[in-house]
Amino acid sequence: MKIKEGYMLKALAGENVVINVGPDSADFSKMIRLNGTAAFMWRQLEVGKTPEETARAVAQEYGIAPEKAEADVKKFAAELLEKGLAE
């Protein structure tokens, strides 16, 4: 999976916000806020890392069990796909 073109993560007024700067930017249902961990995952996926690689990075960054990281990334990825932010 990969982040769709036009979507990007921005730190705005102290919040991590996913924005769309493409032709569909009037669709605010896709404007979401991310917590720190989710923002970290986004940044991994954004640069082309696979969900598996992202999970390994999360486990290392946050010192959590690989299984837990994999589950978190899987859930996050599913959410991005459901909202149409990734393909």
Binding site: M8, K10, A11, L12, A13, G14, I19, V21, G22, P23
Partner: peptide
């Protein structure tokens, strides 16, 4: 413009500065 990506991105940054 929603078609000038640089302008759209810049506006988000300006909005962030305003809201801060």
């Amino acid at each position: 413009s929603h078609y000038n990506k640089r302008a759209a991105e810049a506006v988000y940054d300006a909005l962030g500065r305003l809201l801060e």
